[in-house]
Design a protein around this nucleic acid. Structure first.
Lengths: 154, 154
DNA sequence: CGGCAAAAGTGGCATATGCCACTAATTGAA
DNA sequence: TTCAATTAGTGGCATATGCCACTTTTGCCG
């Protein structure tokens, strides 16, 4: 039946990673859905929450995401009143982000939901294994891979 | 520096997975870019290539992706003439997919580019480690996690 | 055979992400 | 001080993904 997924295929690290991301993403999405948030939005709110009024660029860097992509993703959250932005006093080019009171409330609500999914996941794969997997994923994410195209400047 | 990424944050398996996916995704995207394909499109063409004129549902299941999402993703590839669809003789509800001759050519071209990225990745993390990571990811993807929300029908 | 439930896709709508071109604010010289 | 180069975001465009509602086929049952 699942022969369609030839063993030779899953050799692509990227495809395998995306496949797992889709799968796990749906699980966490379902979990936090009652809050009205998506898994990604929850993660974003959390990231902002644990940072100190981070600049957009700082968030983008931490999450390894394109700055403009972050901007787009932030819009629905601003629209819904969960976060707000304000210019940095020192450098007016910099836009900082923070949760609104409603955002804090919503985050607390979502954390409870998230915990259930997180716990269930850890129960299934084991906290130890989960930690190892996260470590491996962080290592991959921080590899800083680059195609030779852009030859090193020096 | 990267203090913005509090250790407490990466505890979310989903967020960690997505972050890694964004990172690796860009790497592979850059690699196959010269072919005009995205990493996901390459993966899709490959999946179709190694299958036998698979039905859309079959592909979606193998890749653990929403059927409608697959349909949307397929459009650009059909528009560009890399794949074509046709109704199944037995069951007219089923729509099968196959590569066009141009699609085969494009895939061959992309495979060469992909190989470079794949090789570079394996060189960095080690073929052994990469294989283990993929296995772990496949295991996670196939966990079949589900939020209790949908209480068993019986 | 008629009709209803299940299966397979489609289309619409919304978020997630990226890249590129462009604007505003800074910084670093000359 | 003035202007070119750099930095931080924005807006537009395109793909990636999901969910939901709806249509077409099937399959099955009385």
């Amino acid at each position: 039946m699942t022969e369609a997924r030839m063993p030779g295929f899953s050799r692509c690290n990227n495809a395998t990673l995306r496949r797992a991301a889709r799968s796990l993403g749906r699980f966490y999405d379902d979990a936090v859905a009652p809050s009205g948030l998506k898994g990604t939005q929850f993660g974003l709110l959390f990231q902002i929450h644990v940072s100190s009024e981070p600049a957009m660029g700082t968030i983008a860097e931490a999450l390894i995401m394109d700055l403009s992509a972050l901007g787009h993703t932030l819009k629905p959250l601003i629209r819904d009143g969960y976060i707000e932005t304000f210019a940095d006093k020192e450098d007016r080019r910099v836009k900082r982000v923070r949760l609104t009171p409603q955002g804090e409330v919503k985050l607390d609500e979502a954390i409870k939901l998230w915990s259930v999914a997180q716990q269930q996941f850890e129960d299934k794969v084991g906290a130890e294994q989960a930690a190892k997997l996260r470590a491996a994923l962080d290592a991959v994410a921080d590899l800083n891979l680059e195609m030779p195209t852009a030859a090193p400047s020096n």
